[in-house]
Design a binder for these strands. Sequence first.
DNA 1: ACAACTATACAGACTAGTCTATATAGTGAT
DNA 2: ATCACTATATAGACTAGTCTGTATAGTTGT
Lengths: 193, 193
Amino acid sequence: MNKITAREKLLKAAGELFYNNGITATGIDSVINRAGVAKMSLYNNFKSKSDLVAAYIDARHQEWLDLYAIRSANLANGWERVLAIFDAYQDHAEFDYQNGFRGCGLLNAAAEMPANSIEREAVNRHKQEVRAIVHQQLSELPFTDDSPAHLTQLTEHICFLLEGAISLAGLSKDTGAITRARTMADQLIEQAL
Amino acid sequence: MNKITAREKLLKAAGELFYNNGITATGIDSVINRAGVAKMSLYNNFKSKSDLVAAYIDARHQEWLDLYAIRSANLANGWERVLAIFDAYQDHAEFDYQNGFRGCGLLNAAAEMPANSIEREAVNRHKQEVRAIVHQQLSELPFTDDSPAHLTQLTEHICFLLEGAISLAGLSKDTGAITRARTMADQLIEQAL
DNA sequence: ACAACTATACAGACTAGTCTATATAGTGAT
DNA sequence: ATCACTATATAGACTAGTCTGTATAGTTGT
């Protein structure tokens, strides 16, 4: 029968409300109402709103990893697997566009939190992981300049393109920006080979 | 004696609190306490909190334009004036770092607001203006490929680098990212000439 | 006198989180 | 099959505090 638990309903509702309206602006009552769940079900599953936010951040991170796993499966080389990162974000953008694409949910979450908060650190870890994937995939390619410094610089360049494109795509409601950033990354890699 | 008006005190206090703690998380009382001003002074100068937020966004935009005007004055050509955009953001980053650099205040403000809100549109206009400056300065340079399409693509590439670097610099507390993005833009322009 | 300001009190809605009490479904032991 | 137990769910009242915004009376400098 695979019943949907209150926890799952809460994470789904929180995911939608947090992404669309922001975390601070979203009250506990909105979340439980949208989830169709009793308030105590929230506090039986999560210690506090902060705990729910932490679970939300975690779920978004995992969601992206899953999208990337699908997009990068069966690809021939690191080049294609780097471009698949853009595809994974594109999938993400298309998915959220129904309720109005607002850029990266994790970056938006971080934007609401004070410096040095655990939430910002969690989002930073996510972005570092994305960077590590870019670095790993690029390291398999035979660049003309195969120094570690060049690899690091190219990695960072692609990460900047990625984050910039997603943020500006969300602002200007032009998800095509992500595709164009993908093309830029593609040309960048081609040039360096 | 050049007295500081309640309005100025409020904008300064709101600027600090909104940037450091987020807009939604900052209450009216925090703002007036930090400003050292009566609550009615806020509502005599601003119709509502939203009105104060709009003024905040406007002030940040103007602040950046001023920083850019200083950085781009007396520069020889469009190339240098494009790089000066990175310098202006770097100044911004250094300035805010005292209370913990958290990236672009305008992008962070947009991140808290729902899609299609007037605040997001105001921030979008700011970013479009920055893009127009990049475009304008680049258009003065004698690129090998001087087609409008190439100019547009290079403009967008630099804008992506800019936004990505600022966001990630704020997250990872590494303001050097902005300098490195500047170098990337520099190389990009050099290559295209 | 006039304008800008301060200081407080207030209304009313909303906030996160706690509490009690109840319902239901599944498990294991006898 | 029945009983006791456990886990998870429900409804809804309740506390204690915060939120934006208003009203009112008094103060200060020119």
